[in-house]
């Protein structure tokens, strides 16, 4: 299975922003992030003949390439690419214990949260991530506590669906 050249160019238009954002986060530097994204698309271009849509989305494929590029950059620097700093809480966190894989997954979760819309994101962030009590958030926003509860429900649903769209399999 192969990816036509035009599709790789199209993929740049569609995904370069997000790949760049992730590279910025991992490498902590715009110039190096651009270098990584450039290398990523160059590799994608060269290996487009081996792209197999059965094995994952275009986005997943590009992230896998970027992951290797960033790992190589980190190695050549003698530095480890940084992920989001996280504390261990193995029982809560699914998937993987590799720092880089975790950073990728965290990025995917962030992207899912970006996609669910401000109203729901705000509630999910305040209650699920920051752990603020519903009553406090309700008072701060001037809405009933019951509304907070239902937005947590619809927000988590939307986030779950966005994760699926992004190719996450639980």
């Amino acid at each position: 299975m192969t990816m036509p050249g035009e599709q790789v160019r199209e993929a740049y238009r569609a995904h370069s922003g997000e790949l760049f954002g992730f590279a910025c986060r991992s490498l902590g530097d715009r110039d190096r992030a651009e270098e990584a994204v450039q290398e990523c698309f160059l590799k994608a271009w060269r290996s487009r003949a081996s792209y197999d849509p059965e094995r994952g989305s275009e986005r997943t494929w590009l992230f896998a390439i970027l992951r290797n590029v960033i790992a190589d950059l980190g190695r050549s620097d003698g530095r480890r690419p940084a992920g989001a700093p996280l504390e261990e809480s193995a029982d809560r966190i699914p998937s993987t214990d590799q720092p880089f894989e975790r950073a990728m997954l965290a990025w995917q979760v962030e992207e899912a949260l970006r996609r669910i819309g401000e109203r729901h994101r705000q509630i999910v962030v305040e209650t699920c991530l920051r752990g603020r009590p519903y009553a406090e958030v309700a008072a701060a926003l001037g809405i009933p506590e019951g509304t907070i509860k239902s937005r947590v429900y619809y927000g988590l649903r939307a986030m779950r669906d966005a994760m699926e769209e992004l190719g996450y399999e639980s």
Partner: peptide, 12 residues
Amino acid sequence: LRQAGALISLVD
């Protein structure tokens, strides 16, 4: 939803 909620703790 429980799985989705657990993922949120990955975010800084």
